[in-house]
């Protein structure tokens, strides 16, 4: 990065002489891959007008509530969520938003499976979705272990044999409350957040997969459409 003492703060980018800089290259690559109109589109193809396409954003909305209520729970701690009425309420919000998230995520998964949503160079979208699902199961599991009640004790003693039989118990000890809590509130949410962000960016990059052509009609292209090249009747 070049230091320019006379540079006004609002013209810090896109000077021709800076084209070889790492920041300029990264910025151009990012904008070329995901221009603003593709990152936040105003319209979607006609086939997206179905309730089955709602469950992805419903999953993410529930995830947002999970994270927000999780932050509140971590601020006040176990005594608060076990004893006070408000703590019970936020604890219940955390649990039921997780239930809703999995409910919506499974329907989203079924819908995408029967659409074969990996078609048209969308394999990375499908795989990141599956990874997000598996990681969410692990996050929910460590959440059950972090409740600090008889339920969490029961689940951990039942789970330890299963985990130990895989050999993972050497590094992932479900009876170690501190370790499970750290996995639940730090590591797994961080990884899930990154994977979900990549998943959504892949949806924006490749677009929503078109439906299968009806019997007897010609097969339409499933390839993503390049911005600026789209014409009426294209699928993206």
């Amino acid at each position: 990065m070049t230091i320019d003492t006379d540079l006004p703060s609002n013209v810090a980018a896109d000077r021709p002489e800076d084209a070889d800089q790492l920041t300029a290259k990264l910025r151009h690559a990012a904008v070329a891959a995901l221009p603003p109109e593709r990152l936040m589109p105003d319209r979607q193809p006609a086939y997206v007008a179905s309730w089955i396409y709602v469950f992805g954003i419903l999953t993410m909305s529930a995830l947002a509530v999970v994270i927000l209520t999780g932050i509140v729970l971590s601020i006040f701690g176990p005594l608060w969520w076990h004893v006070s009425s408000t703590g019970h309420f936020v604890n219940s919000l955390h649990l039921w938003s997780v239930e809703l998230m999995f409910f919506a995520m499974v329907i989203h998964l079924w819908g995408k499976f029967f659409m074969a949503a990996w078609r048209g160079r969308r394999r990375a979208t499908w795989i990141t979705g599956i990874v997000a699902f598996v990681l969410s199961v692990g996050t929910a599991f460590t959440g059950y272990l972090s409740q600090q009640n008889f339920d969490s004790q029961w689940i951990s003693t039942q789970a330890k044999d299963g985990i130990n039989s895989t050999g993972a118990g050497a590094v992932f000890n479900v009876l170690n409350f501190g370790q499970m809590l750290m996995w639940h509130i730090v590591l797994l949410p961080l990884i899930v957040g990154v994977i979900v962000a990549i998943h959504v960016l892949m949806v924006r990059l490749r677009g929503v997969v078109p439906p299968f052509a009806p019997p007897g009609e010609p097969v339409t292209s499933t390839e993503p459409v390049t911005i600026g090249a789209a014409t009426e009747g294209d699928e993206s």
């Binding site: 179905s50 309730w51 089955i52 469950f55 079924w110």
Partner: peptide, 9 residues
């Protein structure tokens, strides 16, 4: 979930 899946379709 099965009921909601078919309802959504």
């Amino acid at each position: 979930m099965v009921i909601v899946f078919f309802a959504a379709i």
